[in-house]
Nucleic acid binder design. Structure first.
Ligand SMILES: NC(=O)c1ccc[n+]([C@@H]2O[C@H](COP(=O)([O-])OP(=O)(O)OC[C@H]3O[C@@H](n4cnc5c(N)ncnc54)[C@H](O)[C@@H]3O)[C@@H](O)[C@H]2O)c1
Ligand SMILES: NC(=O)c1ccc[n+]([C@@H]2O[C@H](COP(=O)([O-])OP(=O)(O)OC[C@H]3O[C@@H](n4cnc5c(N)ncnc54)[C@H](O)[C@@H]3O)[C@@H](O)[C@H]2O)c1
Lengths: 209, 209
DNA sequence: CAAAAAACGTGATGAATTTCACAAAGTTAG
DNA sequence: CTAACTTTGTGAAATTCATCACGTTTTTTG
């Protein structure tokens, strides 16, 4: 499992992106692809792509490029595309509902299998094929999911996080503006939409291209 | 306006985050704060915070820390908190509706003022106080917004992008999985939720903490 | 088959960012 | 007022990442 511990984090973040585009190429029937072509598609410098791939060994052929099918199979293995990661979603509001309706399974090794909310009107329903349980039953009904998506009001974020961590969750995708505290064994990725919008506006005003 | 061109981009991305937490402290009636306290709250190393602030001059006092009110006023000016950036949202589906219902104006210098969709059933309605117009009327009704949020199906992303760019938009927050092409004068921030989820899963499997 | 073209893999370099660690300056307590 | 303590601001080192540039291998063309 965790063999190749030397892959830069920046590279690891690009792998799912590569995977998606290579899969597209495969579905289009393309047999080979060069780092330059891939670069145009994913908007990542071609040297960076070659460097990224090289961490996994020599995947390509000089003068030819990369064999699409070979590359695809390689990525499937590397991203554990076959072994699905089960995910829980907490907070079935505006954002949470959008995620449940979205089919995260396209090109994806992750699947939301259960959702939780405090609103009794939602409990017992099914959204996008995912059953909604009551937050009070979190411990009982979350099974052994290892990843949670947090889309609750920010006030509730830390309390729920503590329960998730206690229950053994090791990764949290946090959409709330709260910066949650977790033990060092738990990984949190923050997606802060307000900050993204504000910083885009700031860049436009102060870093004219 | 664009005086301080020397602020590292990594710092610029953290400014809205700092602003939000400083504002919270102010609302809580706190008079001063140290880089260490702020570090605990925003989960950014305290040395990084001091370095970030130092790009704007000496904002703090040795042995004391930072005066919350002073800091807040400084950030308000710096982030142009008073001058609101008007934003258009394209694609009023699951995700787009969530954004419209969300009040981006809390602690925020950005405001969605108009939305567009191809679905006639939506056109003419108002969601979260934002009027929805038909995508055919994009050029006519978008006014002079400079930023657009893209939440359309990925197939439509490039076509709409071209129209936005043609119309003078200079920043795009792209939520579609498509990697769109723009001239070098336009800034695109990609938020790829599937990639975020997949890469979190990958990190958990390969980089155990 | 030979020459030209294509494209990988990577050493070297440089840019950007984070972090350490400490002198200097200010605060607090007695 | 003095001593002990706190905390900033910043050189310097460390780290991470992206990009250049080219030798080498393979493919393609004529
Ligand atoms: N909607 C957006 O566009 C947007 C943008 C940026 C950030 N966010 C953040 O995402 C989070 C969710 O936003 P939203 O718009 O979906 O909010 P929402 O109010 O629509 O949904 C929140 C949901 O969480 C549920 N909830 C409340 N307390 C709970 C608890 N203790 N346990 C379980 N469920 C609980 C509520 O019943 C509700 O269904 C918020 O923190 C918000 O700040 C949202
Ligand atoms: N919903 C999610 O959780 C989620 C997650 C990851 C990525 N995304 C991406 O975000 C985008 C939107 O997702 P969604 O779930 O809201 O989809 P959706 O299908 O619910 O909404 C898309 C909306 O765009 C409108 N539309 C279609 N073509 C258009 C055109 N040419 N001009 C204007 N409007 C048009 C549709 O009428 C619809 O209202 C998609 O690209 C999707 O891949 C969504």
């Amino acid at each position: 499992m965790g063999d190749e511990m030397k892959i830069p984090q920046a590279t690891a973040k690009r792998l799912p992106l590569y995977y998606r585009f290579i899969n597209n190429l495969y579905l289009q029937g393309k047999l080979r692809v060069s780092s330059k072509e891939l670069s145009d598609a994913v908007k990542v410098d071609s040297a960076t792509i070659r460097r990224d791939f090289s961490y996994f060994g020599a995947l390509g052929k000089k003068g030819y490029g990369y064999n699409v099918e070979h590359l695809l199979q390689f990525f499937r293995r590397t991203l554990d595309q076959d072994e699905t990661t089960e995910v829980a979603l907490i907070g079935v509001g505006n954002l949470g509902t959008a995620f449940l309706n979205y089919n995260f399974m396209k090109n994806n090794n992750t699947k939301i299998v259960v959702a939780f909310d405090a609103n009794d009107g939602l409990v017992g329903t099914e959204i996008g094929g995912v059953p909604v349980a009551h937050i009070d039953d979190l411990e009982e009904k979350m099974g052994n999911v290892s990843v949670a998506i947090l889309t609750v009001p920010s006030q509730a974020a830390q309390g729920i996080t503590d329960r998730l961590v206690e229950r053994g969750v090791s990764g949290i995708l946090n959409f709330t503006p709260a910066r949650i505290s977790v033990p060092p064994t738990v990984r949190v990725h923050h997606i802060d939409l307000s900050v993204e919008l504000q910083s885009l506006a700031y860049f436009l005003k102060h870093y004219p291209l």
